[in-house]
Simulated assay, not measured.
Amino acid sequence: MNTRFRTVRSRLAFTLVELLVVIAIIGVLVGLLLPAVQAAREAARRMQCSNNLKQLGLAIHNYHGTFQQFPANIGTDKDLWEGSNRTSNASWLTMILPQIEESAAYEQFTFSGTDFTDTGSGTNYNWEVMSNLRVPGYNCPSNPMPNERTHTATAGTQAIGAPETYNIQIPDYVANVGFYFRPGADSFAWDRYYANTATWTGYGWLQDDGFLSIINNVFQKRRFSSVTDGTSHTLAVGEHSNFLHHFDGTKQDSRPGRGAGGAWAAWPSHFEWSSASGRTSNVTVPRYPNNSLYANNYTQKDENTLHNGYRSAHTGGVQFVMGDGSVRFITDSVDFVNVFPALAGRADGYVIREEH
Score class of each variant (00 low, 15 high):
195 A>F: 00
343 L>W: 05
107 E>N: 15
216 N>G: 11
117 T>V: 15
210 G>P: 08
130 M>E: 15
245 H>G: 02
155 A>F: 00
308 N>T: 04
298 Y>R: 13
77 D>Y: 06
310 Y>R: 01
337 V>E: 11
155 A>Y: 01
41 R>Q: 15
127 W>A: 12
278 G>S: 09
259 G>H: 02
260 A>T: 13
310 Y>M: 02
200 W>C: 09
317 G>I: 07
21 V>F: 02
348 D>P: 10
258 R>I: 03
78 K>G: 06
186 D>G: 03
308 N>E: 04
47 M>A: 15
318 V>D: 11
93 L>D: 06
210 G>E: 02
282 N>V: 05
189 A>I: 06
266 A>F: 00
32 L>D: 13
23 I>E: 02
339 V>C: 08
66 T>Y: 05
63 Y>H: 11
206 L>E: 07
186 D>E: 09
331 T>S: 15
48 Q>E: 15
276 A>K: 03
328 R>V: 12
81 W>A: 07
162 A>Q: 03
99 Q>W: 00
278 G>M: 04
323 G>A: 10
290 N>R: 02
12 L>Y: 06
10 S>T: 12
306 L>S: 14
106 Y>W: 14
135 V>G: 14
308 N>S: 07
355 E>P: 09
271 F>W: 15
25 I>G: 14
9 R>S: 10
60 I>E: 07
207 Q>H: 08
115 D>A: 15
45 R>Q: 12
272 E>H: 08
286 P>W: 04
226 S>G: 06
254 S>T: 08
343 L>N: 01
180 Y>A: 09
267 W>Q: 03
312 S>H: 01
256 P>F: 00
78 K>I: 15
32 L>R: 14
329 F>M: 01
279 R>N: 12
58 L>G: 12
260 A>E: 09
292 S>G: 15
346 R>M: 07
166 Y>V: 05
217 N>S: 06
233 H>D: 04
238 G>T: 06
134 R>F: 15
122 G>T: 09
32 L>P: 02
291 N>T: 08
258 R>K: 14
233 H>P: 01
265 A>C: 08
186 D>K: 07
57 G>V: 06
293 L>E: 15
291 N>Y: 03
38 Q>D: 04
187 S>K: 03
212 L>Y: 02
233 H>A: 04
43 A>G: 11
311 R>M: 13
283 V>L: 02
317 G>M: 10
112 S>H: 14
115 D>Y: 03
321 V>H: 15
247 F>P: 12
204 G>T: 05
222 R>W: 03
164 E>Y: 00
192 R>A: 07
279 R>H: 13
265 A>H: 07
25 I>T: 15
117 T>N: 12
231 T>E: 10
345 G>S: 13
57 G>F: 04
272 E>L: 08
259 G>E: 05
350 Y>D: 12
162 A>W: 05
105 A>G: 09
132 N>T: 11
300 Q>V: 10
289 P>R: 05
225 S>F: 03
31 G>N: 06
351 V>N: 00
192 R>N: 01
259 G>P: 07
14 F>H: 10
140 C>G: 12
16 L>G: 11
219 F>P: 10
45 R>V: 01
198 A>E: 04
22 V>W: 11
254 S>N: 12
283 V>Q: 05
91 S>P: 05
290 N>C: 04
232 S>Q: 13
257 G>W: 01
136 P>E: 12
201 T>I: 02
24 A>I: 03
189 A>M: 09
177 V>S: 03
18 E>I: 00
